[in-house]
Design a protein around this nucleic acid. Structure first.
Lengths: 193, 193
DNA sequence: CGCGGGTTTGATGATGCTCAAGCCCGGTGG
DNA sequence: CCACCGGGCTTGAGCATCATCAAACCCGCG
């Protein structure tokens, strides 16, 4: 159950067995069925979630009812609305499962405890946060400087694993375009070669 | 010279005087004149820079020569191309000064030393990184879910201080639109009220 | 006074969106 | 086993928005 997490941590930092053990004792395993919510708009985001198996999405819903994908997650990714998680204020966003999934949850207090008692944890946390930050910056860079078509190509290239599992209309939303536009982009690309 | 930095740190974490002193001894003061580069495409980003005074921009240039603003920075902000800074690979991006500025630079080795020797530093670094990450996510959220007009309004609201100092065509670029479009958006907004 | 950077304006065209319909396919129930 | 859903993807027509290209304007500064 903790293998995916162990792999993820050890590939990034050295963590003594006792630190890892403490980590696992503080985490709560949770299964989520497809379409089930981990976080719902209006609730406080109580959990930082590691995905050991499955696929989730983080999204918001605008006034007109349209969903906007903020982020996807699969095995080895963390999911959270950091804003709400840290402030304890109600979230404006949602997280739900696109597939039956298995998560490891940790709450804010346990995280504080972990940070206090397991020095290696903070090093790991920092690495993950930096990775996430760089990914976010790269995505922003794509929004300000490249066309939807190019964004799509880069997405496919960067996240093949996601591309194969996630419905196209969600990818369109992630790219900031409509499903129809993505469909036409794909059509044009297939004609080109 | 270090007042701005002291303020920034102490408003976020407790830092013993000796940790702060170590920090300042590891930093290199540097003045940048308007238009001068801190980082140029093709070079490795050697410095993490704290802005004690002035205004910088972080931008990329596409094939057609158009500049795309990734981020601005003023007093109290950090600037870096984290990707290049950590990997030691040449950057594809640029950082230059929009005003005469005063920076505090720290290189990768000094940062490692700081992290080793000043426990409070890591706590500070983590807080800043989390803030940056949340800001990046908010910006992504705007790109996937709101119109250029709304993005402009939110920018003005969120970053009044920047808005007053930065030329409009740079703000347009930051928002992912052309200066002409921003001009028309502003015209429409001024007619509305 | 003239120059240059920054902003605005206008005309035109490309691009993406909206609305609406059709298609394809896997799943369900008669 | 087949008919019928329904979700997801595609297609089409018309429209709105934004980009482009070009010119004018504005203003601070040498």
């Amino acid at each position: 159950m903790f293998e995916e997490l162990r792999k993820h941590i050890l590939s990034r930092v050295d963590m003594p067995e006792e630190d890892f053990n403490l980590t696992t004792t503080l985490m709560i395993p949770k299964k989520l069925r497809k379409r089930q919510y981990l976080l719902q708009e209006g609730d406080v985001c109580k959990w930082l979630a590691f995905i050991s198996k499955g696929c989730l999405r983080h999204f918001s819903v605008d006034e007109s009812g349209t969903e906007h994908i903020q982020r996807f997650g699969i095995e080895g990714w963390w999911m959270v609305d950091l804003e709400s998680f840290q402030s304890h204020r109600p979230s404006t966003e949602n997280i739900d499962a696109l597939e039956d999934s298995e998560l490891l949850l940790i709450d804010h207090d346990a995280l504080t405890e972990l940070s206090r008692a397991a020095p290696a944890w903070d090093r790991y946390y920092k690495v993950v946060l930096e990775e996430e930050f760089k990914a976010a910056r790269a995505r922003i860079s794509d929004f300000v400087s490249v066309s939807p078509k190019e964004r799509y190509l880069r997405f496919v290239e960067t996240y093949q694993s996601l591309f194969q599992r996630v419905p196209l209309h969600h990818i369109a939303s992630y790219l900031g375009i409509t499903p129809q536009s993505l469909s036409r982009i794909r059509k044009e690309l297939s004609r080109q070669k």
